[in-house]
Design a protein around this nucleic acid. Structure first.
Lengths: 214, 214
DNA sequence: AGTTTGACATACGCTCCGTATGTCATTATT
DNA sequence: AATAATGACATACGGAGCGTATGTCAAACT
């Protein structure tokens, strides 16, 4: 039985390192994660890490890139199966909030990432989720659903809002109740983007997710 | 010539440590700031630091509390001199964005703080700015200007939006242009909170800051 | 005056990171 | 096919930084 080809072994090593780091970063945080420890847990040493990723930051970048790609894929699925563009956009935002509730994403991508690598808007992965959101907003603008606004600008403030909503929910004593309040407030903000008259009347009671404008 | 009373000397020492740490954290970041270095720059040693603040995190907390207090004071001034509650709220948000552009605030409070101390919503200083914003929103709701929404929820998503707007602006190649786009998008979101009909008609051209509803 | 308290400095050990070097298998060369 | 060269890792070493344990000295107390 032949050994696996070289390329595969290398890819496997990289994958093992990324997986081990992802677990360590996600559970104890970047600063507390010992390189000796988590490389050992992958059956390797720091030698491999420095060889493949240059340094600890480089590995964090790789981990974030991986998570970011997964997030993007999930978001695409969500927005693709909506009936209208607006509904897809709203659904995508909601999904974004839900993803930001996951501890791994919150810790690695949303907290340690910016602290270690600087502002996400400068990342090479360019926060793919923002791009996706921008594209949707661009279409909504062309379609005439939302007012004239810079798509990227809107995408950034919206993602900021959803991100904080998620963090608030995640750290809340009663995530269920908090989630309802946060999502409602968030949806109100989103409606600020809609053109005059497209906004539907809202009952005072906790409303269902708004149906998209025809 | 008498030496200063004991209490004053101690307070002075604490202040010197906080000031030195604030400068170090703000310029090179929390992780890169050497305790030996910045305590020495204050004419002290780590002994004083551990005595007064327990550890490096404790000092970061003190620094953030100080900055937070300053931010709150500035925001109160801004909102106090507005003609209407809504205008005050909008002004306060704008001021929040502008403050978030300051490197020291951005780095210490918005990036390193959450990474080291966890989610700001759990901080003892409780993010005083959020509280202030919540109070304003509560009044706006009582007044009937905005729709029924949980004030804290709205405050959190709004601060998240403004924060990301600020980071985007701060790291932009052309802060002037980016600022215009970001603030416009942000103001649109804010209008989502207004009651039906209170929303003013918006021209397509980059609008001035909206005048408050009567 | 003697005792106690507490504000700070000094000293020590430990962990962790980055680099420099070594080793062995795979690939390229002739 | 034999040798050279590359590259994927492991090992070894040095340095920095942090936390703690201990020491010192002045101020407050009795």
């Amino acid at each position: 039985m032949g050994h696996k080809p070289r390329k595969e072994m290398i890819a496997e090593t990289r994958a093992k390192l990324v997986a081990a780091a992802r677990h360590a970063f996600g559970s104890v945080g970047y600063a507390e994660a010992s390189m000796d420890d988590f490389t050992a847990s992958a059956g390797l040493t720091r030698g491999a890490l420095y060889h493949h990723f240059g340094d600890k930051k480089g590995l964090l970048q790789a981990v974030i890139a991986e998570i970011d790609a997964e997030m993007l894929a999930r978001l695409k699925i969500v927005s693709a199966r909506a009936d209208t563009l607006w509904q897809g956009f709203v659904d995508e935002c909601t999904a974004y909030i839900e993803m930001a509730l996951e501890p791994e994403i919150q810790r690695i991508v949303l907290r340690d990432g910016p602290a270690v690598l600087g502002d996400p808007s400068q990342w090479p992965s360019q926060n793919e989720c923002i791009r996706s959101m921008s594209e949707n907003l661009q279409k909504l603008r062309d379609e005439g659903t939302i007012v004239a606004v810079d798509p990227e600008a809107a995408a950034r403030v919206v993602s900021g809002a959803s991100l904080h909503a998620a963090q608030w929910i995640a750290n809340s004593d009663d995530p269920e109740a908090t989630s309802k309040k946060a999502v409602k407030a968030f949806n109100l903000l989103l409606e600020g983007l809609l053109k005059q008259g497209r906004r539907i009347g809202r009952p005072q009671a906790p409303a269902e997710m708004d149906k998209s404008p025809a």
